[in-house]
């Protein structure tokens, strides 16, 4: 289930990356992260299949739920990493201009009170 959720996330992000207008959203990182994790879980799944055979495709509902929960958490973690990097690199200058504006308004207020 974790593999499946990660693969779907990878496919969706890849489509978004392919149809993007510019590179300011830095979707490339997210694409590589999801595909990297998907390929690694694929390796794990291959060994799981060799060990369990057909039973591998019929997990217990509790295990499936736990794996789905884990898959969603993994997607959330990847999105947080991507978002933090996006805000730090700030390709559109949104964070910088926002900080500049708040600093300017603060100094205006201080000048008024003085």
């Amino acid at each position: 289930m974790t593999l499946l959720i990660t693969v779907f996330a990878a496919i969706i992000v890849t489509i978004k990356w392919y149809t993007r207008k510019d590179d300011t959203m830095q979707l490339g990182l997210l694409v590589f992260m999801f595909w990297g994790a998907s390929l690694m879980w694929l390796g794990d799944a291959i060994f799981g299949y060799i060990e369990e055979q057909a039973e591998f495709f019929a997990p217990a509902p509790a295990d499936m739920l736990n794996d789905a929960y884990l898959g969603l958490s993994v997607v959330a973690l990847a999105l947080v990493i991507w978002l933090v990097r996006l805000l730090i690199t700030d390709p559109k200058g949104v964070v910088k201009s926002s900080i500049q504006k708040s600093v300017a308004s603060d100094s205006k207020k201080k000048a008024k009170t003085a």
Binding site: L29, M33, W35, G36, M40, W41
Partner: peptide, 14 residues
């Protein structure tokens, strides 16, 4: 490196 580090971080979380 992006694929490897991305996979490693997410698998470490698992």
């Amino acid at each position: 490196t992006y694929m490897l580090w991305g996979g490693v971080i997410l698998l470490a979380y698992e």
